[in-house]
Protein backbone atom coordinates (compact mmCIF):
# COMPACT_ATOMS: atom_id res chain seq x y z
CA UNK A 1 0.00 0.00 0.00
CA UNK A 2 2.16 2.81 -1.21
CA UNK A 3 1.01 6.35 -0.67
CA UNK A 4 1.24 7.19 -4.38
CA UNK A 5 -1.05 4.35 -5.46
CA UNK A 6 -3.88 5.29 -3.10
CA UNK A 7 -3.65 9.03 -3.55
CA UNK A 8 -7.14 10.19 -4.32
CA UNK A 9 -8.22 13.21 -6.27
CA UNK A 10 -8.25 16.31 -4.01
CA UNK A 11 -11.72 17.27 -5.20
CA UNK A 12 -13.56 14.03 -6.06
CA UNK A 13 -16.53 14.26 -8.40
CA UNK A 14 -19.79 14.27 -6.46
CA UNK A 15 -22.15 12.47 -8.86
CA UNK A 16 -25.39 12.81 -6.85
CA UNK A 17 -24.82 16.56 -6.59
CA UNK A 18 -24.08 16.80 -10.35
CA UNK A 19 -27.27 14.88 -11.11
CA UNK A 20 -29.24 17.21 -8.83
CA UNK A 21 -27.81 20.23 -10.65
CA UNK A 22 -28.71 18.69 -14.02
CA UNK A 23 -32.22 17.98 -12.77
CA UNK A 24 -32.59 21.56 -11.58
CA UNK A 25 -31.41 22.88 -14.97
CA UNK A 26 -33.80 20.55 -16.82
CA UNK A 27 -36.71 21.67 -14.64
CA UNK A 28 -35.86 25.33 -15.23
CA UNK A 29 -35.85 24.86 -19.01
CA UNK A 30 -39.10 22.87 -18.86
CA UNK A 31 -40.91 25.39 -16.63
CA UNK A 32 -39.65 28.33 -18.68
CA UNK A 33 -41.00 26.67 -21.84
CA UNK A 34 -44.39 26.23 -20.11
CA UNK A 35 -44.59 29.97 -19.54
CA UNK A 36 -43.57 30.73 -23.16
CA UNK A 37 -40.55 32.60 -21.94
CA UNK A 38 -39.19 33.20 -25.45
CA UNK A 39 -36.73 35.76 -26.72
CA UNK A 40 -39.30 37.56 -28.88
CA UNK A 41 -41.67 37.86 -25.94
CA UNK A 42 -38.81 39.22 -23.88
CA UNK A 43 -38.05 41.86 -26.54
CA UNK A 44 -41.73 42.86 -26.73
CA UNK A 45 -41.74 43.05 -22.94
CA UNK A 46 -38.67 45.31 -22.92
CA UNK A 47 -40.37 47.53 -25.47
CA UNK A 48 -43.54 47.65 -23.32
CA UNK A 49 -41.43 48.27 -20.26
CA UNK A 50 -39.71 51.26 -21.88
CA UNK A 51 -43.09 52.77 -22.78
CA UNK A 52 -44.36 51.97 -19.30
CA UNK A 53 -41.49 53.78 -17.60
CA UNK A 54 -41.79 56.62 -20.07
CA UNK A 55 -45.37 57.15 -18.96
CA UNK A 56 -44.42 56.87 -15.29
CA UNK A 57 -42.09 59.87 -15.40
CA UNK A 58 -42.49 62.50 -14.22
CA UNK A 59 -44.56 61.37 -11.19
CA UNK A 60 -47.93 63.07 -11.05
CA UNK A 61 -48.06 66.03 -8.69
CA UNK A 62 -51.64 66.82 -7.84
CA UNK A 63 -54.42 64.57 -6.59
CA UNK A 64 -52.84 65.20 -3.18
CA UNK A 65 -56.27 64.93 -1.60
CA UNK A 66 -56.82 61.39 -2.91
CA UNK A 67 -53.30 60.35 -1.94
CA UNK A 68 -53.60 61.82 1.56
CA UNK A 69 -56.95 60.17 2.22
CA UNK A 70 -55.69 56.75 1.10
CA UNK A 71 -52.39 56.95 2.95
CA UNK A 72 -53.90 58.20 6.21
CA UNK A 73 -56.49 55.44 6.09
CA UNK A 74 -53.71 52.87 5.57
CA UNK A 75 -51.81 54.22 8.58
CA UNK A 76 -54.98 54.17 10.68
CA UNK A 77 -55.67 50.57 9.68
CA UNK A 78 -52.12 49.55 10.58
CA UNK A 79 -52.17 51.31 13.98
CA UNK A 80 -55.57 50.01 15.09
CA UNK A 81 -54.88 46.49 13.81
CA UNK A 82 -51.50 46.35 15.57
CA UNK A 83 -52.98 47.61 18.86
CA UNK A 84 -55.92 45.20 18.88
CA UNK A 85 -53.86 42.36 17.44
CA UNK A 86 -51.23 42.72 20.17
CA UNK A 87 -53.94 42.99 22.82
CA UNK A 88 -55.59 39.73 21.70
CA UNK A 89 -52.28 37.98 20.99
CA UNK A 90 -51.07 38.40 24.59
CA UNK A 91 -53.63 36.06 26.25
CA UNK A 92 -53.53 33.69 23.26
CA UNK A 93 -49.74 33.48 23.43
CA UNK A 94 -49.89 32.93 27.19
CA UNK A 95 -52.42 30.12 26.76
CA UNK A 96 -50.17 28.52 24.14
CA UNK A 97 -47.08 28.49 26.40
CA UNK A 98 -46.48 24.87 27.37
CA UNK A 99 -44.51 25.60 30.53
CA UNK A 100 -47.31 27.54 32.25
CA UNK A 101 -50.49 25.99 30.93
CA UNK A 102 -51.94 22.47 30.94
CA UNK A 103 -51.54 20.59 27.65
CA UNK A 104 -55.20 20.64 26.61
CA UNK A 105 -55.29 24.45 26.82
CA UNK A 106 -52.15 24.86 24.69
CA UNK A 107 -53.54 22.66 21.93
CA UNK A 108 -56.57 24.90 21.54
CA UNK A 109 -54.47 28.05 21.49
CA UNK A 110 -51.95 26.47 19.10
CA UNK A 111 -54.72 25.46 16.72
CA UNK A 112 -56.03 29.03 16.69
CA UNK A 113 -52.52 30.38 15.98
CA UNK A 114 -51.97 27.88 13.15
CA UNK A 115 -55.28 28.87 11.59
CA UNK A 116 -54.42 32.57 11.76
CA UNK A 117 -51.03 31.94 10.17
CA UNK A 118 -51.95 29.66 7.33
CA UNK A 119 -53.71 32.20 5.11
CA UNK A 120 -52.16 35.23 3.45
CA UNK A 121 -53.59 38.52 4.85
CA UNK A 122 -55.07 39.26 1.42
CA UNK A 123 -57.19 36.12 1.49
CA UNK A 124 -58.35 36.84 5.03
CA UNK A 125 -59.20 40.36 3.86
CA UNK A 126 -61.42 38.94 1.08
CA UNK A 127 -63.42 36.93 3.62
CA UNK A 128 -63.81 39.94 5.91
CA UNK A 129 -64.92 42.13 3.02
CA UNK A 130 -67.76 39.66 2.57
CA UNK A 131 -68.47 39.59 6.31
CA UNK A 132 -68.34 43.31 7.18
CA UNK A 133 -68.50 45.03 3.81
CA UNK A 134 -66.02 47.18 1.88
CA UNK A 135 -63.89 49.63 3.80
CA UNK A 136 -61.32 50.02 6.53
CA UNK A 137 -63.03 47.66 8.97
CA UNK A 138 -62.39 44.62 6.76
CA UNK A 139 -58.71 45.58 6.43
CA UNK A 140 -58.38 46.10 10.18
CA UNK A 141 -59.89 42.69 10.96
CA UNK A 142 -57.73 40.90 8.38
CA UNK A 143 -54.57 42.45 9.81
CA UNK A 144 -55.68 41.64 13.38
CA UNK A 145 -55.87 37.99 12.36
CA UNK A 146 -52.38 37.96 10.87
CA UNK A 147 -51.01 39.91 13.88
CA UNK A 148 -52.45 37.31 16.26
CA UNK A 149 -50.87 34.51 14.24
CA UNK A 150 -47.43 36.08 14.27
CA UNK A 151 -47.20 37.67 17.73
CA UNK A 152 -48.96 34.92 19.69
CA UNK A 153 -46.61 32.30 18.22
CA UNK A 154 -43.44 34.24 19.03
CA UNK A 155 -44.81 35.32 22.42
CA UNK A 156 -45.53 31.71 23.36
CA UNK A 157 -42.00 30.72 22.32
CA UNK A 158 -40.53 33.59 24.35
CA UNK A 159 -42.49 32.52 27.45
CA UNK A 160 -41.35 28.93 27.00
CA UNK A 161 -37.73 30.12 27.10
CA UNK A 162 -37.99 32.04 30.41
CA UNK A 163 -36.18 30.95 33.54
CA UNK A 164 -38.59 29.17 35.89
CA UNK A 165 -36.56 30.06 38.97
CA UNK A 166 -38.18 33.47 39.27
CA UNK A 167 -41.61 31.92 38.74
CA UNK A 168 -40.96 29.48 41.56
CA UNK A 169 -39.65 32.22 43.82
CA UNK A 170 -42.73 34.36 43.35
CA UNK A 171 -45.00 31.33 43.70
CA UNK A 172 -43.26 30.41 46.98
CA UNK A 173 -44.33 33.72 48.51
CA UNK A 174 -47.94 32.63 48.05
CA UNK A 175 -48.62 35.03 45.19
CA UNK A 176 -51.72 34.63 43.08
CA UNK A 177 -51.44 33.48 39.46
CA UNK A 178 -51.92 37.06 38.24
CA UNK A 179 -49.05 38.20 40.44
CA UNK A 180 -46.84 35.37 39.21
CA UNK A 181 -47.47 36.56 35.65
CA UNK A 182 -46.92 40.20 36.47
CA UNK A 183 -43.81 39.83 38.65
CA UNK A 184 -42.07 36.75 37.23
CA UNK A 185 -43.11 36.28 33.61
CA UNK A 186 -43.70 39.74 32.18
CA UNK A 187 -40.33 41.28 33.20
CA UNK A 188 -38.52 38.44 31.44
CA UNK A 189 -40.33 38.73 28.13
CA UNK A 190 -41.22 42.44 27.92
CA UNK A 191 -38.22 43.55 25.83
CA UNK A 192 -38.68 40.79 23.26
CA UNK A 193 -42.41 41.38 23.19
CA UNK A 194 -41.88 45.02 22.27
CA UNK A 195 -39.53 43.85 19.51
CA UNK A 196 -42.26 41.60 18.07
CA UNK A 197 -44.89 44.32 18.34
CA UNK A 198 -42.80 46.89 16.46
CA UNK A 199 -41.93 44.29 13.81
CA UNK A 200 -45.63 43.57 13.43
CA UNK A 201 -46.35 47.28 13.08
CA UNK A 202 -43.89 47.38 10.15
CA UNK A 203 -45.49 44.33 8.62
CA UNK A 204 -49.01 45.73 9.10
CA UNK A 205 -47.98 49.03 7.48
CA UNK A 206 -46.81 47.11 4.40
CA UNK A 207 -49.97 45.03 4.23
CA UNK A 208 -52.35 47.90 4.99
CA UNK A 209 -51.21 49.55 1.76
CA UNK A 210 -52.25 46.37 -0.10
CA UNK A 211 -55.56 45.19 1.41
CA UNK A 212 -57.35 47.92 -0.56
CA UNK A 213 -56.84 45.85 -3.74
CA UNK A 214 -59.54 43.46 -2.53
CA UNK A 215 -61.68 46.20 -0.93
CA UNK A 216 -60.18 46.38 2.55
CA UNK A 217 -59.63 50.15 2.63
CA UNK A 218 -56.50 52.27 2.41
CA UNK A 219 -54.27 53.35 -0.45
CA UNK A 220 -54.39 49.93 -2.18
CA UNK A 221 -57.71 50.67 -3.85
CA UNK A 222 -56.36 53.94 -5.25
CA UNK A 223 -53.22 52.20 -6.45
CA UNK A 224 -55.12 49.40 -8.16
CA UNK A 225 -57.52 51.86 -9.84
CA UNK A 226 -54.61 53.96 -11.07
CA UNK A 227 -53.08 50.82 -12.60
CA UNK A 228 -56.31 49.83 -14.30
CA UNK A 229 -56.79 53.34 -15.68
CA UNK A 230 -53.18 53.40 -16.98
CA UNK A 231 -52.46 56.48 -14.84
CA UNK A 232 -48.89 55.29 -14.46
CA UNK A 233 -47.57 58.69 -13.37
CA UNK A 234 -49.96 58.61 -10.40
CA UNK A 235 -48.90 54.99 -9.75
CA UNK A 236 -45.31 56.16 -9.37
CA UNK A 237 -46.35 58.92 -6.95
CA UNK A 238 -48.26 56.39 -4.84
CA UNK A 239 -45.38 53.89 -4.89
CA UNK A 240 -42.85 56.52 -3.81
CA UNK A 241 -45.16 57.57 -0.97
CA UNK A 242 -45.65 53.96 0.15
CA UNK A 243 -41.91 53.29 0.18
CA UNK A 244 -41.32 56.53 2.10
CA UNK A 245 -44.01 55.53 4.63
CA UNK A 246 -42.45 52.09 5.13
CA UNK A 247 -39.01 53.62 5.66
CA UNK A 248 -40.41 56.11 8.18
CA UNK A 249 -42.12 53.19 9.90
CA UNK A 250 -38.81 51.36 10.17
CA UNK A 251 -37.10 54.41 11.67
CA UNK A 252 -39.92 54.83 14.21
CA UNK A 253 -39.90 51.17 15.23
CA UNK A 254 -36.11 51.32 15.58
CA UNK A 255 -36.56 54.27 17.93
CA UNK A 256 -39.20 52.41 19.97
CA UNK A 257 -36.96 49.34 20.27
CA UNK A 258 -34.03 51.46 21.47
CA UNK A 259 -36.26 53.27 23.98
CA UNK A 260 -37.32 49.99 25.57
CA UNK A 261 -34.04 48.09 25.42
Amino acid sequence: MSAAATRRAPFPANWPARLAWAGLAAYTVYAASLFELTWTRFLVGIDNGARFFDRMFPPLMGKWDLLWRGMSESVEIALIATFLGVLIAMPVGLLAARNLMPAWVTWGARGLIAMCRSFHPMIVAILFVKAVGFGALAGIMALIVSSIGFIAKLFAEAIEEISLKQVEAVRATGASFANVLLMAVVPQVLARFIGFATYQLDSNLRNSTMVGIVGGGGIGATLFTAFQRFDYDFVLTILITIIALIMIGEVVSGWVRRTFQ
Binding site: S72, E76, I80, V132, G133, G135, A136, L137, G217
Partner: peptide, 18 residues
Protein backbone atom coordinates in the same frame (compact mmCIF):
# COMPACT_ATOMS: atom_id res chain seq x y z
CA UNK B 1 -54.38 55.51 18.31
CA UNK B 2 -57.11 57.91 19.47
CA UNK B 3 -56.73 59.97 16.31
CA UNK B 4 -56.94 56.79 14.17
CA UNK B 5 -60.06 55.51 15.91
CA UNK B 6 -61.71 58.90 15.58
CA UNK B 7 -61.01 59.40 11.89
CA UNK B 8 -61.19 55.89 10.47
CA UNK B 9 -64.40 55.30 8.57
CA UNK B 10 -66.33 52.43 10.08
CA UNK B 11 -69.98 52.01 9.26
CA UNK B 12 -71.75 50.68 12.39
CA UNK B 13 -74.57 49.12 10.37
CA UNK B 14 -72.04 46.89 8.62
CA UNK B 15 -70.70 45.75 11.98
CA UNK B 16 -74.17 44.89 13.31
CA UNK B 17 -74.81 42.91 10.17
CA UNK B 18 -71.53 40.97 10.40
Amino acid sequence: LVQSVRTVEIIPEFLEDA
